[in-house]
Amino acid sequence: MKLAVQEQLLPGRSLQEKFAFAVDAGFDAIELRGKGDFAFAGRLTELKRALADGVVMPTVCVDMPHFIGDFDPDKRRDAVQQLRSQLTVIAELGGIGVMTPASWGQFSLRLPPFVPPRSPEEDREVLAEALNELGEHAARHGVLIMLEPLNRYENHMVNTLAQAVELCSMDSIRVVGDTYHMNIEEDDPCRALVEAAPYLAHMQISESNRNQPGTGHIDWAAELATLDAIGYDGYLALECRLRGEPEIALPQTAAFIRKFR
């Protein structure tokens, strides 16, 4: 089992300090955050120094105000350019790839005004265009662009693993499962993992309440056993709010997850 933890959850002034804490707490890697305005590329010197010091950084989770499914074409274009840059950087670090949702917080079919300004067919065209460009760029650099479904209140375009799989038009486009969003959207999370298995490149883990695993009601034994059964050998990356101080909560969380695998 390989456990990662997102960098913002870790105490420490540098990636080296954060990684030392993460390893002591029972984790194997740090998941990076990719901010906009090419801030991630601006960290390249810092990231290369951390890599040389043994810090393991396999993945990047996008952290921007707009995404590839934005209604504004200029914002969509910027999101694509930011992700192209992040893919280039993670490739230089020898990582796996970059993940992004279709959008976040832009629109929900469950909240007023209920009718989006774009049809489902137009949504799909917009996402396919962006992902195909990113997929080609990722393939050239030997990494992956990974699409993450979000729950219905945060995104109206891609909510389930099956919907994300439909957009995997080439080998360099893959899917991220997030246990929190799956808890809301998947009728049967274990079955969804089995059906998405050929396209599943990464997993993010958090509880039904968005806190750390072990504080809610997700059936971790079943979901982790399913990942074993489908041969998933990627990372489980902790992305959540922490209930309690990280010095206590993070070691407890790593121990909680590892007891199932």
Rank of each mutant, 00 (worst) to 15 (best):
D188L: 03
D72R: 11
C61Q: 00
R191H: 02
M64A: 15
L44F: 05
L87H: 09
F114K: 13
V56G: 11
D78N: 01
W220K: 10
R84C: 13
I145L: 04
T100V: 05
W104M: 13
L3V: 12
V143T: 11
C61N: 07
L83P: 02
A197I: 03
Q16H: 09
P120Y: 14
E207A: 10
M1G: 13
D28R: 01
E245I: 01
R13K: 15
S14I: 00
D187T: 10
E46K: 05
K2A: 07
D53K: 13
F40A: 04
K75Q: 13
V60L: 06
D37N: 14
Y180D: 04
P149E: 08
D178N: 14
Q81N: 10
T45V: 12
P112I: 11
F260G: 04
Y180C: 06
L9R: 02
D171H: 13
G216A: 12
P101F: 07
K75R: 14
L32D: 03
R258Y: 08
P246F: 03
E122G: 01
A4S: 14
D63A: 15
T59H: 09
L250C: 01
D219F: 05
P251S: 09
S119G: 10
E31R: 08
M64F: 00
I205W: 00
S208Q: 06
Q81I: 06
V126M: 01
P120S: 14
L134G: 02
L150A: 14
F107Q: 07
D63W: 07
F260Q: 00
Q252V: 05
F38G: 05
L161H: 07
E186D: 07
L200V: 11
W220L: 02
V23K: 07
Q82A: 13
P246D: 06
Q212N: 08
P112L: 10
G135L: 08
L224W: 12
A128E: 15
A138E: 01
K259V: 04
A41I: 06
D63P: 00
G69W: 01
A20N: 08
E136S: 13
